[in-house]
C-alpha cells in the first residue's frame, strides 16, 4: 500500500468527523417498523442500499468526477454536484448528505492544498454548488493519485463502515457482529465497484422505490436517533 492510499484511508475511518454517525438513510425507518432486527436483516438492507442506490448515485459519481478531473472538465463536476443532490428526493437524506459534504470539505481544506477543492468550497459559499462527500472524496483521491477503482472501492467502504457502526448502536448489534458484517461485505464492495466501472451514464440516479420511501417516511418516524 502506498502512503497516498493511506492518506485516503484516513477519510474512511468511521471516526472521521463529518457527521455520518447521525445519518441512517432510511435504515432507522426499517428498524422502527421491525423489518431490520438483527445482523441478517441488516445485511439484507445494506446489500440493497449498496447495490440499488449507492452504486447508481454516489458510486457512479465518483467514477465520473474522477474522469472529469483527468481532463480538467470542472463544469461536468458542478453538473454532477447538482444532479447528485436533486436526485435525492428525500429531504433529510439530501440535506444530511450536503452537510457531510460541507464538513468533509472543511477538514480536507485544512489538511490539503488542492486548487479544485478551494474552487468547490467557494462555489458552495456562493450557493452555486451544494456540496457532496462523494465529490470531495474523489477530489482528494485524484489528487493523491490513488487509482480510480480504488477510490470508488474506498468510498463505498467508508459508507458501509459508517452504516454498520450506526446499525451496531441502533438495532443494537454486538461490536463483533458488526466487524463480521464489514468483513463479509468485502466481496460485495469489490463486485459493486466492478459494476460501477461498467455502468452506462444513462443509469445515473436509479433508486429502488422501497429504499426511497423509507427515507421519506423517516421524517415522520416517532423515535429518532438519526437525522435521516
Amino acid at each position: 500500500m502506498t502512503n497516498n492510499a493511506l492518506s485516503l484511508l484516513q477519510l474512511c475511518d468511521s471516526s472521521f468527523p463529518i457527521g455520518s454517525f447521525s445519518q441512517s438513510f432510511g435504515l432507522e425507518t426499517y428498524i422502527q417498523n421491525d423489518k431490520v432486527t438483527d445482523a441478517n436483516t441488516f445485511s439484507e438492507w445494506l446489500n440493497v442500499y449498496l447495490h440499488e442506490q449507492l452504486a447508481y448515485a454516489d458510486g457512479l459519481a465518483v467514477r465520473l468526477v474522477y474522469d472529469a478531473l483527468d481532463v480538467d472538465d470542472l463544469n461536468k463536476i458542478w453538473e454532477l454536484d447538482r444532479i447528485l443532490t436533486v436526485q435525492n428526493l428525500a429531504r433529510e437524506s439530501r440535506d444530511g448528505t450536503q452537510r457531510m459534504g460541507d464538513r468533509m470539505l472543511d477538514i480536507a481544506e485544512s489538511i490539503y492544498k488542492i486548487p479544485v477543492l478551494s474552487i468547490y468550497a467557494q462555489k458552495i459559499r456562493d450557493k452555486q454548488a451544494f456540496g457532496h462527500p462523494a465529490i470531495v472524496f474523489t477530489m482528494i483521491g485524484h489528487h493523491l493519485q490513488v487509482e480510480k477503482t480504488t477510490t470508488i472501492l474506498y468510498y463505498l467502504y467508508s459508507t458501509v463502515v459508517s452504516l454498520v457502526q450506526n446499525a451496531v448502536r441502533a438495532i443494537p448489534l454486538g461490536q463483533t457482529a458488526g466487524q463480521k458484517i464489514i468483513y463479509t461485505f468485502q466481496q460485495q464492495l469489490q463486485q459493486t465497484t466492478d459494476k460501477i466501472m461498467e455502468l452506462d451514464q444513462e443509469e445515473f440516479g436509479v433508486v429502488s422505490p422501497g429504499l426511497e420511501l423509507s427515507q421519506m417516511q423517516h421524517e415522520r418516524v416517532g423515535i429518532r436517533i438519526f437525522s435521516s
Binding site: 423489518k35 438492507w45 440493497v48 447508481y56 436533486v86 436526485q87 440516479g205 433508486v207 422501497g210
Partner: peptide, 18 residues
C-alpha cells in the same frame, strides 16, 4: 431528478427495499 428502473429479473421485487 427521478429515475425508477424496475427490472424483475435482476431485482428481488418482493423483498425489503424494492
Amino acid at each position: 431528478f427521478d429515475h425508477i428502473k424496475l427490472h424483475p429479473a435482476s431485482q428481488h421485487m418482493n423483498e425489503l427495499g424494492f
